[in-house]
Amino acid sequence: EPREEEAEKYIKRANGDYDKAQELAKKDGNEEIAEAIKEYKKR
């Protein structure tokens, strides 16, 4: 799923820090991806 791939990219950029990844996504205006990262975190 493209959303998950995007989320993974942010998580990698944030060195595995989900909260930081979420912030990066929000900064880029990717609210949807920020949500996907939140879902990811719950797994």
Rank of each mutant, 00 (worst) to 15 (best):
E1N: 15
E1S: 14
E1G: 14
E1M: 13
E1A: 13
P2M: 13
P2W: 15
P2N: 15
R3P: 12
R3G: 12
E4G: 09
E4Y: 14
E4A: 11
E4S: 13
E5L: 14
E5S: 14
E5T: 14
E5M: 13
E6M: 12
A7K: 05
A7T: 07
A7N: 03
A7F: 11
E8F: 12
E8D: 08
E8T: 06
K9L: 07
K9A: 13
Y10S: 02
Y10L: 04
Y10A: 03
Y10F: 03
Y10R: 03
Y10M: 03
I11L: 11
I11M: 05
K12Y: 06
K12C: 10
K12A: 12
K12P: 03
K12L: 07
R13P: 02
R13T: 08
R13M: 15
N15W: 07
N15A: 07
N15H: 11
N15R: 08
G16P: 01
G16S: 02
G16V: 00
G16M: 05
G16R: 03
G16K: 02
D17R: 02
D17S: 04
D17Y: 01
Y18M: 07
Y18P: 02
Y18F: 11
D19H: 06
D19R: 05
D19I: 08
D19K: 08
D19L: 09
D19Q: 08
K20E: 07
K20A: 10
K20C: 12
K20P: 00
A21Y: 00
A21M: 00
A21E: 00
A21L: 00
Q22H: 10
Q22A: 14
Q22G: 05
E23K: 06
E23W: 08
L24W: 06
L24A: 06
L24E: 07
L24R: 04
L24D: 05
L24I: 05
A25D: 00
A25H: 01
A25S: 02
A25T: 00
K26D: 04
K26M: 13
K26N: 07
K26Y: 11
K26G: 04
K27H: 10
K27E: 12
K27L: 15
K27T: 08
D28S: 04
D28M: 03
D28C: 03
D28A: 05
G29M: 04
G29D: 05
G29A: 04
G29P: 00
G29F: 04
N30C: 07
N30F: 14
N30H: 13
E31G: 08
E31V: 11
E32I: 09
E32R: 12
E32Y: 10
E32H: 14
I33N: 01
I33V: 13
I33E: 04
A34R: 03
E35H: 09
E35S: 07
A36S: 07
A36G: 04
A36N: 06
A36R: 11
A36Y: 15
A36E: 06
A36C: 09
I37M: 02
I37N: 01
I37D: 02
I37Q: 00
K38T: 05
K38G: 08
K38I: 09
K38L: 12
K38H: 07
E39L: 06
E39V: 05
E39W: 06
E39G: 05
Y40K: 12
Y40V: 10
Y40H: 12
Y40E: 07
Y40R: 12
Y40G: 05
K41C: 10
K41T: 05
K41P: 04
K41M: 10
K41F: 07
K42N: 09
K42E: 13
K42R: 11
K42W: 05
K42A: 10
K42H: 06
K42S: 09
R43W: 09
R43V: 09
R43Y: 08
